[in-house]
């Protein structure tokens, strides 16, 4: 009994302390160093922020280069497939073009009407001005635990923590980490994401919570409320971070929301700087 315990302790000590021919450090030394780095980073000592920022910027750039072969292969296969689909797509587009030409007339009418109504409301034109920074997605490594992307704009471009990130017209997430030349965007489907939203004709208020999967879920609904399928979900702006009315997705079964923007397909996104401008005044 005691000899087996001795064997265990000898082997364990040996595993922790021994250094092979090619090993420069023992495991126990590396474990201690890793623990120190972890706690320094967690408790956010002042000197760690610039160090982390420099490390992040450097590694993101190297990662972009390292990932280029893996990006090229799907792009190349996609191009070949596209070539075959072009003809049938062209026919369909011609038909759609006719429909859009007719719609254009009604859009023009509605735009004029909208302008007139804004004049009547004496609305602040600046409120509707766009202050966006266009950014390229550097890394979108999908982790089973964290859903985030890295973009190529950071504090140098005026980006601040918490700013909303948009793909076309649709909200995709918010900034959670800023470096000098890059930033991390927490996507709406991440487990740590919470966004106040509104939907339906009654303007029901809820919180859109990331599920860790592809579809976030609506929480804090009115008591007994059953979510219908097919309702468009918008930001409510109650948190003071997002403007009200940014489209997010459509409700599906079990209170889940199918996002308008596919997070795995993001190439370029826009960061909304307007909140920063507003706060500055």
């Amino acid at each position: 009994m005691s000899s087996s315990r001795d064997d265990f302790s000898i082997a364990f000590r040996s595993a922790l302390l021994q250094r092979g021919a090619a090993q420069k450090f023992s495991l126990v030394f590396l474990i201690i160093i890793a623990s120190i780095i972890f706690f320094l980073d967690i408790y956010g000592f002042g000197f760690m922020k610039p160090i982390r920022s420099i490390i992040n910027d450097g590694i993101y750039r190297v990662s972009l280069v390292a990932s280029s072969p893996s990006r090229f292969i799907p792009q190349a296969t996609g191009s070949v497939t596209n070539l075959f689909n072009i003809k049938s797509e062209n026919e369909e587009l011609k038909k759609e073009l006719e429909v859009y030409r007719q719609k254009e007339l009604s859009v023009e009418y509605l735009t004029n009407q909208n302008k007139n109504l804004r004049k009547i409301l004496e609305s602040d034109e600046n409120l509707f001005k766009e202050h966006y920074v266009l950014s390229k997605v550097l890394i979108d490594k999908s982790s089973p635990y964290l859903k985030s992307i890295i973009i190529n704009k950071g504090s140098k471009a005026g980006i601040l923590k918490g700013m909303p990130v948009i793909d076309k017209e649709y909200l995709v997430g918010r900034i959670v980490e800023i470096n000098y030349l890059s930033s991390r965007v927490l996507l709406l489907n991440d487990l740590n994401s919470r966004i106040p939203v509104t939907f339906g004709e009654d303007g029901v208020q809820a919180i859109l919570k990331g599920s860790g999967g592809s579809r976030p879920v609506l929480e804090y609904l009115p008591e007994g409320y059953v979510v219908e399928e097919g309702l468009d979900v918008f930001t409510s702006g109650k948190d003071g971070i997002f403007f009200a009315g940014s489209p997010i997705g459509t409700t599906v079964e079990k209170g889940e929301v199918k996002l308008f923007s596919e997070s795995s397909q993001l190439s370029f996104v826009k960061v909304d700087l307007s909140k920063q401008k507003k706060e500055a005044f």
Binding site: L30, F38, D41, I55, Y60, K141, L146
Partner: peptide, 11 residues
């Protein structure tokens, strides 16, 4: 750094 975890945790 790539995943966005606190430094040292994966190590």
């Amino acid at each position: 750094v790539v995943i966005g975890f606190p430094l040292g945790i994966s190590s």
